[in-house]
Write a protein that binds this DNA or RNA. Structure first.
Length: 225
DNA sequence: GCAAGGATCTAA
DNA sequence: TAGATCCTTGCC
């Protein structure tokens, strides 16, 4: 695993090539079933361009929140002023604030009107690390984007990014071919009380860029798609 | 282990 | 309009 981490971090050297690549995730990807998207997002690169600075990280942990049948989802009680971004067509961000303190960033999925999203829980930072360290007030690279609140802070994602498209020039995802280098595992979602047994959380197996302590318990390795 | 902290929803 | 809830974090 150590070797693998080193390799991931060395991606910074090739990030320019990655950014200029045309292998961006397209709109169709976001319209797929939410669990499928949450699984497939692992290993893709989340990119945000601020002025001339590239912030980027490999997605290492996600959670799926489904439609109004999912009691843990914000869309469970239907559409409201707060959660209406979830009901947009897949491919936009849904930002919410938790405990009045931390922002959390979700990627909206499926066609318009359904109300599904995938929470970004952790990334492996590969570009713009200096900026993230300043924002997070820590130099611990493992902790920069570990946990949804930290991730949002490192990338400076707040309400102004709610409903922003991930198909734009300064905010997008990149496909990679990293998925033969790790196993994906799943587990119950973190921090929820209802339906927390459902295996809707996906993460890179044995990766240190992952949040949640109880996470490893109940986790099971699943096949990469 | 638990407080910080604020928007939103629900019950009256 | 008061009170509970909430996909968390960092400090005690």
């Amino acid at each position: 695993m150590k070797k693998l981490i080193k390799q991931w971090l060395n991606l910074e050297l090739t990030v320019e090539a990655l950014i200029s690549s045309s292998d961006k995730v397209n709109k169709e990807f976001f319209l797929n079933p939410t669990l499928e998207v949450a699984h497939s997002l692992i290993g893709k690169i989340f990119v945000k361009i601020e002025n001339n600075t590239v912030l980027a990280g490999i997605i290492s942990e996600t959670e799926a929140y489904l439609d109004s049948n999912d009691r843990a989802s914000h869309s469970y009680r239907g559409i409201s002023r707060k959660n209406d971004a979830m009901f947009y067509e897949g491919g936009v961000l849904y930002i919410y604030k938790i405990f009045g303190i931390h922002y959390c960033a979700n990627i909206v999925t499926e066609p318009a009107g359904i109300g599904c999203a995938v929470l970004l829980r952790s990334l492996i930072p590969i570009s713009g690390i200096n900026i993230m360290q300043r924002r997070r007030r820590t130099t611990d690279i493992y902790n920069l984007c570990r946990g949804p609140g930290n991730l949002a802070k490192a990338f400076s994602l707040d309400y102004t990014y709610n409903k922003n498209s991930l198909l734009s020039d300064n905010l997008y995802l990149l496909n990679t071919e990293l998925d033969n280098q790790y196993f994906i595992a799943n587990s119950g979602r973190i921090g929820i009380s209802k339906d927390d047994h459902l295996p809707y959380r996906f993460f890179i197996y044995e990766c240190p860029f992952i949040s949640g302590k109880k996470s490893i318990k109940n986790a099971q390795k699943i096949l990469n798609s």
